[in-house]
């Protein structure tokens, strides 16, 4: 049954992707890409990747749609009709697809236990997590502790992207602010629409609560800093859409956001340095407490908080930068 559902969802995914590319109306494309992300999240869930599904749903269907819409508000709602011939590109793409499909014929079957990917280091991580860190969620353990270096790198990529957007757009309205067709940043927000206001206001506290749950329960169930950051940012963005951007800036001012961006990344790095000061390696949390396993859990909790803070700060700063650019 699950298999049939999976095939159905994959086919829907392909249809949506074709519709996204075909549509001349960019607004339709963006809305469809939100749907695409949601379908992808359900697919991930069926493939046992609960953490990834949660991230994709919060980031892909929530935040990315809002960012694309606020970019559309400043640029253009319609794509110009293509003038040049597209036959050449189509032929190249079809040939490449056939080559890729031919290459898959040598791949291991779907979910094959003998596939090379299941033979290498994965069993080691599944075995050692309970012994070294003693938390149920192996994904969080690998993310935060075993491969803590990589995650630190990822956090700094997110940090850099946030700084980059702030450099590019700043906080001032741009020259095309007047042509804003969506009133995404209407100072009054959506307050004059009854249904979004009532439903939205009811949802925001629960989204925030769920974000915090995902943040602090990430060691035991699906969740962690990346997902929680995206969820909390989504809740505040929803508030900004409903009540106007300025009300959201009263809740979390720009200066605080910049502090969050840098603070989260710094917190992560400082925990790593503590490892060195206490006589071990960078990002080795075992020495944070007299009991190595407790130390690992403590380190994970702190660095996940750092990740969550930076992701929230960056996503909200990006949203405010886009919104301010299109302001009346």
């Amino acid at each position: 049954m699950t298999v049939i559902f999976g095939f159905f969802l994959l086919t829907l995914l392909l249809i949506t992707a074709v519709a996204i590319v075909q549509s001349q109306n960019l607004f339709v494309s963006v809305m469809l890409s939100g749907m695409f992300s949601l379908l992808l999240a359900v697919n991930f869930f069926l493939l046992d990747a609960a953490d990834v599904a949660l991230t994709e749903a919060a980031v892909g269907a929530g935040i990315s749609t809002v960012l694309l819409l606020s970019a559309l508000a400043i640029t253009a709602k319609h794509e110009k009709a293509p003038s040049s011939s597209r036959v050449g590109a189509l032929i190249i793409v079809i040939i490449a697809t056939l080559v890729l499909i031919y290459a898959t014929l040598g791949n291991p079957q779907f979910a094959d236990p003998n596939a090379p990917v299941h033979q290498h280091v994965a069993p080691w991580y599944l075995d050692k997590t309970a012994e070294a860190i003693d938390i149920p969620n192996v994904v969080t353990a690998v993310l935060g502790s075993f491969r803590g270096y990589d995650t630190l790198g990822e956090v700094f990529v997110v940090f850099t992207a946030g700084i980059g957007v702030l450099f590019l757009l700043g906080t001032q309205p741009g020259p095309f602010a007047q042509s804003n067709p969506f009133k995404l940043t209407d100072p009054k927000g959506l307050r004059h629409y009854l249904i979004p206001r009532v439903v939205g206001r009811m949802l925001i506290p629960f989204i925030l609560l769920f974000g915090l749950y995902v943040q602090f329960h990430g060691e035991y169930g699906p969740g962690g800093g990346f997902q929680a950051g995206a969820l909390i940012a989504a809740a505040i963005i929803l508030f900004a859409l409903l009540e106007g951007e300025n009300s959201a800036l009263k809740v979390i001012p720009r200066s605080v956001l910049i502090g969050l961006i840098a603070g989260g990344a710094l917190l992560y790095g400082v925990v790593g340095l503590f490892g060195i000061f206490l006589g071990s390696n960078f990002l080795d949390y075992s020495v944070l407490s007299s009991n190595p396993v407790k130390g690992q859990q403590m380190g994970l909790l702190i660095i996940e908080a750092g990740v969550g803070i930076t992701v929230t700060g960056v996503l909200l700063s990006i949203f405010h930068a886009f919104a301010a650019r299109g302001k009346f």
């Binding site: 935040i63 299941h118 995650t151 990529v157 992207a161 990346f226 992701v311 960056v314 990006i318």
Partner: peptide, 26 residues
């Protein structure tokens, strides 16, 4: 259990993906 390693990679890649797309949109 399914393999946790690809999940870790993709989990972070999604968030990095949205950040780079935001930079592109900027």
């Amino acid at each position: 259990f399914s393999n946790p390693l690809p999940q870790v990679l993709i989990l972070t890649a999604i968030v990095v993906g949205i950040s780079t797309m935001a930079l592109g949109l900027g």
